[in-house]
Design a binder for these strands. Structure first.
Lengths: 174, 174
DNA sequence: GTGCGTTATATCGATCCGATAAAATTATAT
DNA sequence: ATATAATTTTATCGGATCGATATAACGCAC
């Protein structure tokens, strides 16, 4: 899903600044989406050019606050785009890329990578468990449970097989 | 990991055409990496400009075959880049993006998305199980098992909760 | 020799990103 | 009330990636 579509969807609930939109994506949708300022402001600019959002700068000067709000035609555009979204997912892993070439890596580096990956999964699981489930729709809760099931599996796998795999790699080497 | 680094790593084993390199990424590393021609040929071009690879066009004409081979300084460059790789992962899901806004989606569309996601996970699990494990290093097998654990978790989750979630969404709506 | 399917190279406009820069607003301390 | 610090906010750049599209070389069957 393009970032511009995501912005439209989030603006359905309430007008927001660009900075708040980014915070919302990272804080509430971060288990399956991302946003950077480098992409966000151009996306908002093109939504505004297409009259799907407006931006209100009253009450601020220069590069001050701009509240973005969705328009009626923006609502329609979001509905159309949402109906056409596929079930696609996209996963990239520097961690697995490195492990794929484990025979070229120092054993210490391999252990460090596994520890770092495990720590990252645990942190993200904590973050997911801390989300305010009570005020979410079922669709939103579904995304959290789905992401949790995958994080749990990765944690269980790394915790159970991480050390053993390093031992096999060591054995393969000597 | 940048695609150019991946190319260096794959060329350690044997020289390959650009087309074969893409096939190798998609076929053997597809559970954690991707490559497109749009990125691959420019990456090979910049590796050649940096003298990390050479390309041999003898035996072909015009836009004919080019065999890319890693150089000695390419091997060194790969070793340096590999040592600096982090444990980062990056996950994006149009599927979860759509489900996040499930209250704006037709129930039929929600069911279709879940079915499509489940089918995709099953197909990828079959592909992973069909990989030639016997001729892989332990690091390579590790990547397959890790990816399998996550696909299994997603399949179990969708199979177990998919229908129930649609029922809750239906109930929330009426 | 011809035709077809596969292999192969290549590029474009669009989207995204991390890094960086600058400035406005808000909060806090005095 | 004022000054300072922290947070919020906008913005852009060069670089990487992508899907789509175009073109052509190669290999194989007949």
């Amino acid at each position: 899903m393009q970032l511009s579509t995501l912005c439209l969807g989030l603006l359905l609930a309430e007008p927001m600044t660009g900075y708040a939109l980014k915070g919302k994506v990272i804080g509430t949708l971060g288990h399956f989406q991302h946003a950077s300022f480098g992409a966000l402001y151009p996306a908002l600019g093109s939504l505004e050019a297409g009259r799907f959002v407006t931006s209100d700068r009253s009450g601020s000067t220069g590069l001050g606050k701009r509240l973005y709000a969705i328009t009626e035609s923006g609502r329609g555009e979001f509905t159309e785009r949402l109906a056409e979204v596929s079930a696609a997912e996209n996963f990239r892993s520097d961690f697995l890329s490195a492990l794929y070439f484990a025979d070229q890596l120092a054993l210490d580096d391999i252990e460090r990578l596994i520890d770092e990956r495990l720590a990252n999964h645990r942190a993200e699981r904590r973050r997911l468990l801390a989300l305010p489930i009570a005020s979410m729709t079922e669709g939103q809760r579904f995304t959290v449970r789905y992401a949790l099931s995958m994080r749990n599996a990765a944690i269980e796998f790394l915790h159970g097989e991480g050390r053993a795999s390093v031992a096999v790699i060591r054995h393969e080497r000597y």
